[in-house]
Simulated assay, not measured.
Amino acid sequence: MGEAGKIAIVTGASRGAGKGIAIALGRHGCTVYVTGRSRQAGDHALPGTIYETAEAVTAAGGRGVPVRCDHAFDTEVEAVFAQVEKEHGRLDILVNNAAAIHDELTDPGGFWEKPLKLAGLIDVGVRSGYVASWHAVQMMVRQNSGLIVFTSASGAAHYSMGPAYGAHKASMDKMAFDMASDLRHAGKSVAVVSIWMGALLTDRLKAIIASDRKKYGHLDGRCETPEFTGEVIWALSNDPELQALSGSTLVGAQIARDYGITDAGGRVPATAQELHPGLKPLAFHHAVVR
């Protein structure tokens, strides 16, 4: 398939990582379906809408298609995939990035001292990623090709912002591993990976850094751009050895080096292990119980 022909869905792409990934895929001529809840300014405390992201994808050289979707509702998710099926009959890349992130996540205190709504990461994050992948695989198995990506982070393997966040990230990695096992067992050439992103210089993180420079100022100059992971995903989707990586949790900064990808300005972001010696994705056992 030619570069301009790839069809992608990036969930939770009104802003942040999802927006950057969608724009990066647009640079390579992809048609990118941009999902999210924000349709106009004021829908969220942070700037960004699905329409703005879609326009940025088109401006980058692709075709952005905004689709309003609340990933808490399975019927809305189903409608996104039905639209892609109707309009293209195929899907090449799914990026599971939608997550229910609340500002209180970074507040001090134990999990019991924070609002119960933080558990929403288990619904819009873990469960929603499963549901979107289930729909994506219906098309990908039929065409016997495709790439599903979960956006994860090193919080899967160390404490970070509480149990809801940790459970979300660890679940991304394990779902990629298990989904790849099922697909491999069925003899299908559909790859599933989880990617550890570094700290991303998004509007949310900029606000967090500004709110407490003593605590978060060390992140200045150490963040990845939101587009960086999108470039990694594009390289993965074109790797003839992709199936060998299926089921893996990949450290984005490391796999980028393997592909010769740099971030804005030619910068090479630090890997998780460079920032925290000994830190690496969990190794899941090869035993299979069916």
Results as ranks from 00 to 15, higher is better:
Ala82Asn: 11
Lys117Ala: 13
Ile233Lys: 01
Arg37Ile: 13
Gly18Asp: 08
Met139Phe: 06
Val149Ala: 01
Ile9Ala: 01
His28Thr: 07
Thr35Gln: 07
Asp203Ile: 04
Ala207Pro: 02
Ala56Arg: 09
Ile21Asp: 00
Leu116Arg: 14
Cys30Ala: 15
Val10Thr: 05
His88Arg: 13
Arg68Asn: 04
Ser171Ile: 06
Lys19Met: 08
Ala72Arg: 14
Ala100Asp: 15
Ala56Val: 09
Gly247Asn: 12
Arg15Lys: 14
Ala170Asn: 01
Leu105Gly: 11
Lys169His: 11
Ile255Cys: 03
Asp203Phe: 03
Ala17Gly: 01
Met139His: 06
Gly12Asn: 10
Trp234Glu: 04
Val77Thr: 13
Gly2Pro: 13
Glu104Ser: 15
Leu94Ile: 06
Ala164His: 12
His286Leu: 07
Leu282Phe: 07
Gly29Cys: 08
Met179Pro: 00
Trp134Ile: 00
Arg27Thr: 14
Arg90Trp: 00
Gly18Ser: 12
Thr249Asn: 11
His285Ile: 03
Ala136Glu: 05
Lys215Glu: 13
Gly110Asn: 13
Leu200Ser: 07
Val77Arg: 03
Thr49Val: 10
Leu94Thr: 04
Ile23Gln: 08
Ser181Trp: 06
Thr229Met: 13
Val131Gly: 05
Pro47Arg: 13
Gly155Met: 04
His218Pro: 01
Ile209His: 08
Lys6Val: 00
Val67Gly: 04
Asp263Lys: 12
Ile208Val: 15
His286Val: 09
Pro66Trp: 03
Gly166Phe: 11
Asn238His: 15
Leu46His: 05
His218Ala: 12
Pro269Gly: 03
Lys174Leu: 13
Ile50Cys: 04
Ser194Arg: 04
Gly109Ile: 12
Leu116Thr: 14
Val77Met: 13
Gly2Glu: 13
Met179Gln: 05
Val67Arg: 11
Glu55Trp: 02
Gly198Asn: 11
Thr262Arg: 10
Glu52Asn: 12
Val67Tyr: 07
Leu205Met: 15
Ser154Met: 11
Phe284Met: 10
Thr31Lys: 04
Ser181Asp: 10
Met197Trp: 02
Val149Glu: 01
His286Pro: 09
Gln40Ser: 14
Ser246Gln: 11
Asp203Asn: 14
Ile50Asn: 04
Gly120Arg: 05
His102Lys: 14
Asp212Glu: 10
Phe228Trp: 10
Ala191Glu: 12
Ser38Tyr: 08
Gly5Tyr: 00
Met175Val: 08
Ser145Lys: 10
Ala264Thr: 15
Val124Ala: 06
Tyr130Arg: 05
Ala253Asp: 08
Gln83Pro: 03
Gly187Leu: 10
Val95Asp: 00
Val137Asp: 03
Val193Trp: 03
Gln273Asn: 15
Arg127Glu: 05
Asp74Gly: 05
Lys86Ser: 10
Gly247Phe: 11
Ile233Ala: 02
Ala4Gly: 03
